[in-house]
Amino acid sequence: MTGNSDILLGYFDSLLAPCPADESGEHPLDSLLLDATAPFAGEADTVASGYRLIALMLPGTPLGRAAALTLNLELLCRLRKLEPGRLHSSMLAACEPEHWYG
């Protein structure tokens, strides 16, 4: 790689790193979302570090799985707006990866 490419890659890495606000624990669900999507990092993709997961390319994956994944991430997204409480904790439990594929 040329020096020029190194400089550019450093620039992209910095711009595309998670925001400091996300790391401060201000939005704990962001990190939950990140953890939840991590196992799929290779085959699917996240927009905005997991605010939504977009199934960009899922070669050879049955649609059901991608759809389930999207639905769960949708749930997680909604969850961010709920006050802590019973609904919140049961939704959170439903989003645990082991429940993802029914």
Partner: peptide, 14 residues
């Protein structure tokens, strides 16, 4: 500032 490349993606997600 890190992460400034993701502002549009996050806005659109909303």
């Amino acid at each position: 500032q890190d992460g400034m490349g993701l502002v549009l993606a996050r806005s659109l997600a909303q």
